[in-house]
Write a protein that binds this DNA or RNA. Structure first.
Lengths: 337, 337
DNA sequence: TTGTAAGCGTTATCAT
DNA sequence: ATGATAACGCTTACAA
């Protein structure tokens, strides 16, 4: 890589001092118009670009946000897009690191970015993450930190999250309203808060409708189409099989759908299905899958906005949380009436 | 954000000079074991982290790669994941910027990152991009630059690309082999090289099989499910409708599929369909869609490897290109025999 | 073995 | 209107 031109080079070339060059370039008053012209002309001729690293060192801020995400699947990619959008607008650049749902990689990523490269973090923790020292570390340094999507129970961190329990309630109540009685749930990994919250909504709603929850109807499995497929096959081979399934992700809904079709059951007649996330794919399959919309793009934007407010030193409390309300989107897979 | 501890602080606290601290911290010889212990102990107690910005300024390199991508849809997200993987391994951090298929945002992103924030670039140009001054600019600065996926015709830039024409040939030949005669193509935007290459493969193969290309069977439309849906409706209402459609992306294949189903046609009997990318969704719909696998993850890894070689000053020629061979994956949508 | 000082590119403060 | 200098945090000759 070639050495880039600096104000020093410009100053030397023009036989003036670097402070004058600096001033001229930044349109400060108190600089002779002729001098300014000389400087700006030469600068653009040399294709001079101010060195952001030097500025970062000087100002002790990099105008960079470290974004750590477990993956870039639909929901998180959409959120990251929202973050990107707002950040760019506000003069921030975003460093996206994928932890790949691995605790180890999350640690490594955090540590790297922490080394004075970023002004703060917007983080969604991996499904493996059960210890939060690295997150506390960020807080200890008083850096702006916003969690999004996946959050941490029992820790007060500013965050953007979804009312997952409501999502669970909406889905379950809808199935009940459509006349389904034996509603199974494919829940996510056990330690994942969002997954548990969706399940709580499910349990709550069953109870509110006088339906006894059945442990055999509650399956924990990875956020994964294959597992969901297997789990559904299992469910469908029960002596009293479920007549509806609520999966806490659309990926899982697809897996469930494959198993249902294989079994020769008709949706929504024989069995109902509701997913979560409202991914485009729900519209592409036959029958189309009902799902819970979570406004991922807006959530991303909100996360970035909250971050920027914190970075600009606006007062904020640590337990500031913005909670988005999900919305039920009814499609053929669950519409029996 | 709190001021982070520096070696200066450590030195002051211990009453020694900063160079000694620096040496102790970096395990240099020539430093008294006792001094070293004092220093390292205090450092870890203060949770000292070396300031990367200062180091970047000193070394004139940031160990950061600027990745510019038009979007984070399946293919590019997968490639970015590959880039990430290799980069992390090699001690680089990745800054991902989405241009959102907009030329303007691509320019802005490039310019920002160029301001000495990154050591070089791995870029996939937006579909809008027809002028390449910003890319030439990077080259002029002698920064490592690798293009991936989308590349530029008539410019010699190191790049990782797919043999798109081969992809077009594989798909088309397969359809012909399955007995389809009137094969339409939903090509992408006209100025996009990858799209044109796929079409060339299509045209070539028709010719090689003695089939006359029909202009009405060649539709240019955005990489977009909705457009593909409209275009297919149009195609299917022709007096002599096509009996097969090759779409140059799986998204478009889904759009086409919707139109085909709406028309009540049976796949693969009445009409054949082949997509491109081999996205997971091709496996989720009924019938499953045949597609062209492009090994996106490996392509991303290769891009990062090439970048790192360049950054390490390995000799390279500007026209160094790694071309991946796509593979046909046959599924039900096109298997008539 | 340790300290001093220059330098990385820039801005801000204080002269001139 | 312009210049000299210190500072940001660090490394690295060079000196002690």
């Amino acid at each position: 890589m070639e050495r880039q031109p600096t104000i020093k080079d410009i100053a030397a070339e023009l036989g003036i001092s670097i402070s004058t060059v600096s001033r001229a370039l930044r349109n400060q008053p108190d600089v002779n118009p002729e001098t300014r012209k000389m400087v700006t002309d030469l600068a653009s001729q040399m294709d001079y670009q101010p060195n952001k690293v030097a500025l970062s060192l000087l100002n002790r801020q990099t105008n960079t946000i470290g974004v750590i995400t477990p993956n870039l699947d639909y929901v998180l990619a959409t959120m990251v897009k929202g973050i990107d959008e707002v950040a760019l607008e506000a003069g921030y650049t975003v460093m996206v690191c994928q932890s790949d749902e691995s605790f180890g990689r999350e640690i490594v990523n955090t540590k790297r970015l922490l080394e004075s490269l970023v002004d703060g973090f917007i983080v969604s923790v991996s499904s493996e993450t059960k210890v939060f020292e690295h997150i506390k570390n960020i807080q200890k340094k008083k850096m702006p930190l916003v969690l999004f999507d996946r959050f941490i129970e029992g820790m007060t961190v500013p965050s953007i999250r979804l009312d997952n329990a409501l999502g669970g309630r909406l889905a379950t109540q809808h199935l009940i309203d459509e006349g389904y009685q034996r509603i199974a749930i494919l829940a996510g990994p056990e330690n994942l808060v969002i997954s548990n919250n969706r399940m709580e909504g499910y349990l709550e709603t069953l109870k509110a409708n006088g339906i006894r929850a059945n442990k055999q109807m509650i399956i924990h499995c990875d956020f994964n189409q294959q597992y969901a497929y297997e789990a559904t096959k299992e469910l469908l081979s029960m002596r009293t099989r479920p007549d509806a399934i609520f999966t806490i992700s659309d990926r899982m809904a697809i897996g469930a759908m494959l198993a249902i079709k294989e079994k020769g059951l008709n949706m929504p007649h024989d069995i109902g299905l509701v997913g979560f996330n409202n991914e485009p794919v729900t519209n592409l399959v036959t029958p189309r899958i009902s799902s819970i919309e979570m406004f991922a793009f807006d959530m991303g934007k909100a996360a970035a906005k909250m971050f920027i407010e914190m970075a600009h030193g606006h007062e904020h409390t640590n337990d500031q949380q913005k909670v988005f309300k999900p919305k039920l989107v009814v499609r053929e897979s669950s519409k029996r009436t």
